[in-house]
Computed example of a mutant assay.
Amino acid sequence: MTFFSLNRCISYKLLLCLYLPAGVLLLTVLLASVHMDIPLAMFTRDPADITHTSPFLGVVSNICILLWCASAAICFFSFFVLRKTGANSAAIFFLFSGLLTSMLMLDDLFLLHERIFPEYLHWRQRYIYLSYVSIVLVYLTAFRHIIFKNNFLLLALALGFFFLSVAVDCMATKMETLVLDYHLFEDGFKLFGLASWLGYFGEKSLYMMFRPDG
């Protein structure tokens, strides 16, 4: 296959989907750097490199983001595959699961409920948590016929671990004087929750690929 024939095999729509978001991101970063008078390197370089600290800076947090991302990727991939097979209800389930996972991933990645919303929008954390809980409850209610039709233990464990992580976060001020390194519990519960979340959607995806009515 020559270069030109290979080039014709590449969809221009695919290239647009791949490179347009990347270009928009770089342009946004450039504009933010100029407008906020922040060095461009602060947006693009690795935090450990910028702060000249250990390369293991935030390693557990970074792994958590990877688990969020992997879960979202599984959900969106399953959505496209199941939509092609005509399993619409299953496809919609994975679409909204992917959107929910992406929302939580962005919150975790950019510290939305911890820094951005409270400091820049002046939203109280209790209301942010309440909003997220409401969204999760609506999601569980809307797709209960799919979620509870077969094994949902991993999802229940994931939600339980997330609840414990949030509980530790809410009691952080008190726990700091009672428990040394309480972050181990807060972030540890989140890590176990994400492992369960990824396991649930990975298993659910495999199950519904072969039994889209399940």
Rank of each mutant, 00 (worst) to 15 (best):
M42W: 06
R45V: 03
H145P: 02
R115Q: 10
L26G: 02
A90D: 00
L26Y: 11
A156G: 04
A156V: 14
P47G: 04
R115M: 09
T53W: 04
H183T: 10
G58H: 06
L109S: 11
H122W: 07
F210R: 15
Y120A: 05
F163R: 05
L157E: 03
K149M: 06
V34G: 00
S165H: 00
C9F: 05
L100Y: 12
L130A: 15
F192Y: 12
M209R: 13
I116L: 13
Y129G: 01
L26P: 00
P118W: 04
Y127R: 07
P21N: 06
S5E: 15
L137V: 15
T101N: 04
F117P: 03
I92V: 15
K190R: 15
T85W: 02
L99P: 00
Y200V: 01
S54P: 02
S97L: 02
T28L: 14
L31I: 15
L104A: 04
C64Q: 15
F210Y: 12
L57Q: 09
M103C: 09
L16I: 10
H52M: 10
Y129H: 10
L100I: 07
L109R: 08
T101I: 05
T173W: 08
G160F: 13
L140M: 14
F201W: 15
S131Q: 05
M1Y: 10
T177M: 08
Y132F: 13
V81I: 10
T173Q: 11
P118G: 04
L82H: 04
V29S: 00
G193L: 01
L109Y: 14
A87S: 13
R115W: 08
F96E: 06
A91W: 01
E203Q: 12
N62W: 07
S11L: 07
A72S: 15
V34A: 10
H183Q: 11
P212I: 09
G23N: 08
R83P: 01
G199I: 05
C170Q: 14
I92F: 03
